[in-house]
């Protein structure tokens, strides 16, 4: 079974700090990482391949330096890496990204399953997986927490919902986006790291994959950012002092006085 895993480079957001005076993000020294959700996608792709045979390919769109990150995926079992890199792709929103990736996937060809992370940590949109499935004209299932069965013909998986999960069956080829619960990504092996070092990442341009430049990047993006600003957490914090008994009593009083009535709350819910 041939599996394509789509990944994105994101800033390691843990370290994002705000400059209070200028209201801007301090980004110095922020390293780039593979979107954490995508590491579950990589692991799941590798696991399926280990069971069914075939090939795993990791695919990304981004600046040339993303190639180095893609090499790391070869240390955890991915067979090949492809990077779409071209200024034509710059400024893409989720629709233009879906389009470019779908062209990249068609270029790679001969695929059975496409695995994406649930969403990227910087944008958090969760739109590219479903978007690219639609561009490819194949079915998708989001928020997959478990694959119950997979063979040449179809996949049966559990999609996480707000109050449980749905069991979905669809024919292959198909796209799934996975949540963290699905697996625990392995650490790179020494042999894998050696292989990653020597690996060559295939870098493709818009022309290489036959993408229509009108549908790529800024030009192919219906949405535009018109303003960004730092949210103000305008919270009037009140610290409750005293001995533990006093603290508990004062807090309970405050909450109850806010018409937060414990006997009602069960009914309302």
């Amino acid at each position: 079974m041939n599996i394509i895993v789509c990944v994105k480079q994101v800033p390691a957001t843990n370290e994002v700090k705000m400059n209070k005076e200028t209201n801007t993000i301090i980004r110095e020294g922020i390293e780039a990482i593979i979107n954490p959700f995508d590491t579950y996608a990589i692991e799941e792709g590798v696991r399926i391949k280990e069971k069914t045979g075939g090939k795993t390919t990791v695919l990304s769109m981004g600046i040339p330096s993303v190639a180095d990150l893609l090499k790391e995926t070869l240390a955890v079992g991915i067979d090949e890496a492809v990077l779409l890199s071209d200024r034509t792709f710059a400024g893409a929103d989720s629709l233009a990204t879906s389009y470019a990736l779908s062209k990249g996937i068609e270029h790679i060809g001969d695929y059975d399953l496409i695995v994406c992370g649930k969403q990227a940590m910087d944008g958090d949109t969760a739109q590219v997986g479903p978007g690219l499935a639609e561009k490819l004209g194949i079915p998708h299932t989001t928020y997959v927490r478990k694959i119950e069965e997979i063979n040449d013909k179809y996949i049966r998986c559990q999609r996480m919902t707000e109050d449980g999960y749905d069991i979905i069956e669809m024919p292959l080829p198909a796209v799934i986006t996975v949540v963290k619960e699905i697996n625990e990504p392995r650490l790179p092996s020494l042999k894998g790291m050696m292989r990653a070092k020597r690996a060559v990442v295939t870098v493709l341009t818009a022309k290489d994959i036959g993408a229509d430049s009108d549908l790529c990047g800024l030009k192919g993006s219906p949405t535009q950012v018109v303003k960004t600003f730092v949210p103000v957490h305008d919270v009037q914090s009140e610290m409750i002092e005293g001995e533990p008994e006093e603290q508990a009593e004062k807090l309970a009083k405050k909450l109850l006085s806010m018409q937060f009535n414990t006997s009602d709350s069960t009914e309302v819910i």
């Binding site: 957001t13 993000i25 944008g123 949405t223 950012v225 018109v226 960004t228």
Partner: peptide, 17 residues
């Protein structure tokens, strides 16, 4: 909408579609 884990808010439009 929030972006970057809520660190930044972005206002987005869809002018021509």
């Amino acid at each position: 909408r929030p972006a970057f884990g809520g660190n930044l808010m972005a206002t987005i439009i869809c002018p021509k579609h």
